[in-house]
Write a protein that binds this DNA or RNA. Structure first.
Length: 214
DNA sequence: AGCCAGGACTGAG
DNA sequence: CTCAGTCATGGC
C-alpha cells in the first residue's frame, strides 16, 4: 500500500474521532504569524497569555507593534517564555513585513516567499510553514515534533528525518490542498495532546488500530 | 521537584 | 558539519 493511502487513513481516522478543528486559533493573519513565533518550543497556554497582553495594549497590529520599544514588547510577551529572544524575532519579522507594505496580504504576492521568510532571523522551517499555511493560505505542510513522533512510532519514517524530507513525504502523498493541510496538521496536534504526550502506545488512542503489531 | 511544551540560533571542536 | 548549550515561562 502506498504512502498516499496510508496517510489518508490517518487523516480519516483522526477526523472521525476528533471532528473538524477550525484552526489556527487566531482572528487575523498577523495574529497567526505572531502566535507562530511565540509558540516556538512553548506550551500554547503560555502563548495565549502573551497574545491577550498584546491585545490589551492594542499592539496586535503590525504598525502598533513596530512602534513599541523592544523592551516594552518583551515585557508584554513575557508569559510566552524566551521573551527577549522572541521580542527580537518579532521585530525582525516586522521589519521584513514593513519592507513589503506592512500587511500580511502583500506577502502572498512575493515570489519565493518561503525562502524569504526563512531569511528572517528567528523564523525556521516550522514557523515559516505555519505562517504560509495558516496566515497566507499557501499549500505548505507544517511538520512539528508531534508529526515526527507519531509517524516514527508508527514505523513510517526514521526518527531523525530532516524537516524538509518529512515535509516532502506529505507533499508527495497529498494533493496541494490548503484546507486539507490545515486540518490534517491541526488533527495531529490535537491527537498528540489528547493521547500521546510522552507515552507511546496508549490503548485509547484511535490510531492504535493503524499501528503495526510489535 | 523535575520534566516538558506546536523551535531556532550559536559556538566549539 | 555536527551537536550540546542557550533562551524562560507556566502546568502538571
Amino acid at each position: 500500500m502506498g504512502r498516499a493511502t496510508v496517510l489518508h487513513d490517518y487523516y480519516t481516522v483522526l477526523l472521525n474521532h476528533l471532528g473538524p478543528s477550525g484552526w489556527w486559533p487566531a482572528q487575523t493573519p498577523f495574529e497567526v504569524a505572531v502566535g507562530a513565533i511565540l509558540t516556538q518550543n512553548t506550551a500554547w497556554t503560555n502563548v495565549e497569555r502573551a497574545i491577550t497582553a498584546l491585545k490589551g495594549a492594542n499592539a496586535l497590529d503590525p504598525h502598533a507593534m513596530w512602534a513599541l520599544p523592544e523592551a516594552v514588547l518583551a515585557e508584554l510577551i513575557r508569559p510566552a517564555g524566551y521573551f527577549r529572544v522572541k521580542a527580537k524575532r518579532l521585530r525582525h519579522f516586522l521589519a521584513f513585513l514593513m519592507e513589503h507594505g506592512g500587511n500580511m496580504e502583500a506577502l502572498t504576492e512575493l515570489p519565493h516567499i518561503r525562502q524569504r521568510l526563512l531569511e528572517v532571523r528567528g523564523i525556521g522551517p516550522e514557523t515559516a510553514d505555519s505562517i504560509l499555511l495558516y496566515a497566507l493560505g499557501l499549500p505548505f505542510f507544517v511538520v512539528d515534533a508531534y508529526t515526527r513522533r507519531i509517524f516514527h512510532r508508527h514505523g513510517l519514517i526514521p526518527e531523525d528525518i530532516p524537516y524538509d524530507e518529512l515535509q516532502a513525504v506529505f507533499h508527495d502523498a497529498l494533493p496541494p490542498d490548503v484546507p486539507l493541510y490545515q486540518e490534517f496538521h491541526a488533527l495531529i496536534v490535537r491527537a498528540a495532546k489528547a493521547w500521546c504526550r510522552t507515552r507511546p502506545r496508549c490503548p485509547e488512542c484511535p490510531l492504535a488500530d493503524l499501528l503495526p503489531t510489535p
